[in-house]
Amino acid sequence: MDEEYDVIVLGTGLTECILSGIMSVNGKKVLHMDRNPYYGGESSSITPLEELYKRFQLLEGPPESMGRGRDWNVDLIPKFLMANGQLVKMLLYTEVTRYLDFKVVEGSFVYKGGKIYKVPSTETEALASNLMGMFEKRRFRKFLVFVANFDENDPKTFEGVDPQTTSMRDVYRKFDLGQDVIDFTGHALALYRTDDYLDQPCLETVNRIKLYSESLARYGKSPYLYPLYGLGELPQGFARLSAIYGGTYMLNKPVDDIIMENGKVVGVKSEGEVARCKQLICDPSYIPDRVRKAGQVIRIICILSHPIKNTNDANSCQIIIPQNQVNRKSDIYVCMISYAHNVAAQGKYIAIASTTVETTDPEKEVEPALELLEPIDQKFVAISDLYEPIDDGCESQVFCSCSYDATTHFETTCNDIKDIYKRMAGTAFDFENMKRKQNDVFGEAEQ
Score class of each variant (00 low, 15 high):
residue 244 I to D: 15
residue 394 C to I: 00
residue 154 D to A: 04
residue 433 N to L: 15
residue 425 A to P: 05
residue 292 R to A: 02
residue 263 G to V: 01
residue 422 K to G: 15
residue 316 S to P: 03
residue 424 M to K: 05
residue 420 I to S: 02
residue 272 G to E: 11
residue 365 E to G: 04
residue 364 K to L: 03
residue 326 V to M: 06
residue 211 L to F: 08
residue 405 D to A: 05
residue 134 M to F: 00
residue 442 F to P: 10
residue 30 V to I: 13
residue 103 K to M: 09
residue 115 K to G: 03
residue 203 L to R: 13
residue 209 I to Y: 15
residue 12 T to P: 02
residue 176 D to E: 10
residue 93 Y to D: 12
residue 18 I to R: 14
residue 412 T to A: 09
residue 41 G to L: 08
residue 379 K to H: 11
residue 408 T to N: 05
residue 101 D to A: 08
residue 250 M to V: 08
residue 58 L to M: 00
residue 100 L to M: 03
residue 6 D to R: 01
residue 432 E to I: 13
residue 17 C to E: 01
residue 5 Y to S: 00
residue 193 R to H: 11
residue 66 M to K: 00
residue 352 I to T: 04
residue 358 E to N: 08
residue 121 S to P: 09
residue 272 G to K: 04
residue 8 I to T: 03
residue 59 L to P: 11
residue 192 Y to H: 12
residue 273 E to D: 07
residue 310 N to I: 00
residue 337 I to V: 09
residue 38 Y to V: 00
residue 398 V to F: 15
residue 289 D to W: 13
residue 248 T to R: 11
residue 46 I to M: 05
residue 85 G to D: 10
residue 348 K to A: 14
residue 309 K to Y: 07
residue 327 N to D: 10
residue 368 P to L: 08
residue 40 G to W: 03
residue 2 D to S: 03
residue 329 K to E: 09
residue 242 S to V: 02
residue 240 R to K: 01
residue 30 V to M: 03
residue 134 M to R: 06
residue 8 I to V: 09
residue 107 G to L: 04
residue 6 D to G: 02
residue 205 T to P: 05
residue 163 P to H: 00
residue 72 W to C: 01
residue 25 V to I: 08
residue 271 E to S: 03
residue 173 R to S: 14
residue 298 I to A: 15
residue 259 I to R: 15
residue 6 D to K: 04
residue 40 G to V: 02
residue 155 P to H: 00
residue 162 D to G: 07
residue 354 S to H: 14
residue 68 R to Q: 07
residue 200 Q to M: 13
residue 373 L to R: 02
residue 57 Q to K: 01
residue 74 V to A: 07
residue 428 A to S: 06
residue 336 M to T: 10
residue 33 M to D: 10
residue 343 V to F: 15
residue 107 G to V: 08
residue 215 S to T: 03
residue 52 L to R: 08
residue 307 P to A: 04
residue 288 P to A: 13
residue 239 A to Y: 05
residue 370 L to W: 09
residue 17 C to L: 03
residue 205 T to V: 15
residue 218 R to W: 08
residue 394 C to L: 12
residue 383 I to S: 02
residue 31 L to T: 12
residue 274 V to A: 06
residue 45 S to A: 03
residue 404 Y to L: 07
residue 197 Y to H: 07
residue 305 S to I: 05
residue 323 Q to H: 07
residue 52 L to Q: 08
residue 211 L to S: 06
residue 13 G to A: 05
residue 3 E to R: 00
residue 262 N to S: 11
residue 294 A to C: 15
residue 169 R to S: 03
residue 379 K to N: 04
residue 17 C to S: 04
residue 89 K to M: 02
residue 233 E to R: 11
residue 370 L to C: 05
